[in-house]
């Protein structure tokens, strides 16, 4: 579904991604871990071109999205993204946050989008917040609504950029359990996170990134119990 070929990204002279070859398949849940500065967020943000790669290719559903002739705005509609800082639109109500993109991008009528928003809110257990504004919500509620906002476009893949890192500890659980449900429903997911428990439980495949390369990848059981790479061993010994 997503294929990266020798993906590279530099900020000035500093090379953050040093050639990444990955293939993310339909329905797969890939969790990316690694120390800060390893390039894992940059990798994720390259997947929908929020960061423009300086080298290599990214193919999404058979289309080379790094080719400028292809309309990235069309492709992004099928790639939901959830941010560390939520990035809800503070000037819009919760309902409008969810319906803005489907309505303005002519995917759904106003009525259909409202109905869809209420379905999504019900699913995440926040129906009563439809007319609230983001400033009135807790961090966990904001992040669940950010997930609903991305889902409203019916994406084929969801990209999560450290979705729980900005949350108070007691709110991490509600967001992770929503992500677990999404995974169970078969959503293709790429998740950058520090939540090792989530990685172990939900992932089909875990990637360890360090210094701009994927140093190790494996299915979670072997990844955590039998790490080969010395840097990964050191990393796991610190975080587990």
């Amino acid at each position: 579904m997503i294929v990266t070929k020798q993906l590279r990204k530099s900020f000035g002279k500093h090379e953050v991604l040093k050639g990444i070859d990955q293939h993310i398949r339909q329905g797969e849940k890939v969790v990316v871990i690694g120390p800060s500065g390893s390039g894992k967020s940059t990798f994720l943000r390259c997947l929908n071109l929020l960061e423009e790669p300086t080298g290599g290719e990214i193919w999404f559903e058979g289309v080379n999205i790094t080719d400028r002739r292809n309309d990235i705005n069309q492709m992004r509609r099928k790639m939901g993204m959830v941010f560390q800082q939520f990035n809800l639109f503070p000037h819009l109500s919760v309902r409008e946050n969810i319906t803005l993109a489907p309505v303005k991008l002519k995917k759904l009528s106003k009525e259909a989008a409202d109905e869809r928003a209420m379905q999504l809110l019900k699913r995440i257990g926040l129906s009563e917040k439809a007319d609230a504004f983001p400033g009135q919500l807790s961090g966990g509620q904001k992040q669940r609504i950010a997930i609903a906002r991305a889902l409203a476009m019916d994406p084929d893949v969801m990209l999560f950029d450290e979705p729980t890192s900005a949350l108070d500890p007691e709110m991490v659980g509600e967001v992770l359990s929503l992500m677990r449900e999404l995974a169970k429903d078969g959503m293709t997911m790429v998740v950058v996170t520090h939540e090792m428990g989530f990685a172990r439980e939900v992932a089909n495949r875990v990637l360890f990134m360090d210094d701009g390369v994927v140093r190790e990848e494996n299915e979670p059981e072997a990844f955590f119990s039998d790490p080969k790479d010395p840097r990964l061993q050191e990393f796991l010994s610190k975080v587990l």
């Binding site: 705005n73 790639m79 993204m81 800082q85 809800l88 803005l100 906002r149 991305a150 476009m153």
Partner: peptide
């Protein structure tokens, strides 16, 4: 906040529409 532009773009809005609506 620059995250607002990113959120708009990630939903599939082009630059100008993100500017206008968000």
């Amino acid at each position: 906040d620059s995250g607002q532009m990113e959120a708009g773009r990630s939903l599939g809005f082009n630059w100008l529409k993100t500017m206008w609506y968000i």
